[in-house]
């Protein structure tokens, strides 16, 4: 059986790695160049966080443990690379939400926002861990996380108050992302033990509640909390002021996509077909040349 602490760290790290990889898909094609850089930089931050957690996970798992997990990795290679690139697809613990393609800018922003609030909650929780090494690691990561949240909240505010089209795209994106966001708080294998030991000071259900409170407060502040009910546009009848001052009625709400199971399964290695595409691309070089360093 895998040490529950390794399960905890892999869940954190895989979320970071995969959302980092998805964010990087905006590189070169974001709506404008400054935002292209911002998303690319956040992408690098997130992948850097993944490395921190992979290294700590490898310390707990040991050489043999890493090789058991990363069956495609050569012996004696870099542990972070092995865990990040050397596992079979069903060995990854990331939430389904983070493996979804970027979609449009509204969905990307919505997911970025919901994810980074979740990461903030998770890191704040872990900062109080009885496991000192994990608690210590949160310090530096939370500093970068504050910027990610600033970035996400600034955009949330702008799109919510922006022209009608921006608000529609954001609302659609939020509804679609919210369907699968609970997967970020899917209970881990061995969670009870982690909580009992104080490694995880609060279980994921408690963290999810905290996340929802923070998200609700933000959405209320921009007058968009109705999306929490799964309805992007007030039952299709929302009237919104356009930039020219005209009121425009919004037609029927688009049904949210998603699996309908709260985005669960990721922590057990069950992923959507979208994950395969990320995995193929992300691990291509490593699979062709196992253990390669550039």
């Amino acid at each position: 059986m895998i040490d529950p602490r390794v399960e905890l760290l892999l869940a954190l790290a895989d979320d970071e790695l995969i959302i980092g990889h998805r964010h990087s898909h905006w590189t070169g094609v974001a709506p404008h160049i400054e935002e292209d850089l911002a998303f690319s930089s956040i992408s690098q931050d997130e992948i850097g966080h993944a490395v921190v957690w992979y290294r700590l996970a490898a310390e707990v798992a040991g050489e043999q443990g890493v090789r058991d997990l990363a069956t495609r990795a050569p012996a004696g290679g870099d542990h972070a690379d092995a865990l990040g690139l050397g596992r079979e697809p069903n060995g990854y613990r990331n939430a389904v939400l983070v493996e979804r393609p970027n979609g449009d800018w509204g969905y990307s922003l919505a997911r970025h926002y919901l994810y980074d609030v979740a990461e903030d909650v998770r890191l704040t929780t872990l900062a109080g861990s009885s496991w000192q090494a994990a608690a210590d690691a949160t310090g530096a990561l939370r500093r970068e996380e504050r910027y990610h949240l600033l970035h996400a909240r600034t955009w949330l505010d702008r799109l919510a108050n922006g022209p009608l089209d921006a608000r529609i795209h954001l609302a659609d994106g939020l509804v679609a992302a919210l369907v699968e966001a609970p997967g970020l708080f899917e209970p881990l294998p061995g969670e009870a033990e982690l909580v009992a030991d104080g490694v995880l000071p609060d279980d994921h259900a408690t963290q999810q509640q905290r996340w929802l409170e923070a998200v609700t407060a933000d959405l209320e502040a921009v007058g968009m909390d109705h999306v929490l009910g799964g309805d992007p546009h007030h039952g299709g009848g929302e009237f919104l002021a356009t930039a020219s001052g005209e009121l425009v009625a919004r037609d029927g709400a688009r049904a949210p996509s998603g699996s309908g199971d709260g985005g669960y399964g990721g922590r057990l290695g069950r992923h959507s077909s979208d994950f395969d595409a990320v995995w193929e691309e992300m691990t291509g070089t490593y699979r062709a040349y196992p253990g390669v360093r550039w």
Partner: peptide
């Protein structure tokens, strides 16, 4: 005015 947000949190030598 946020020097804390400009400091590197992880190895950023690739930048």
């Amino acid at each position: 005015g946020r020097p804390d947000l400009l400091a590197f949190a992880t190895d950023k030598s690739y930048k």
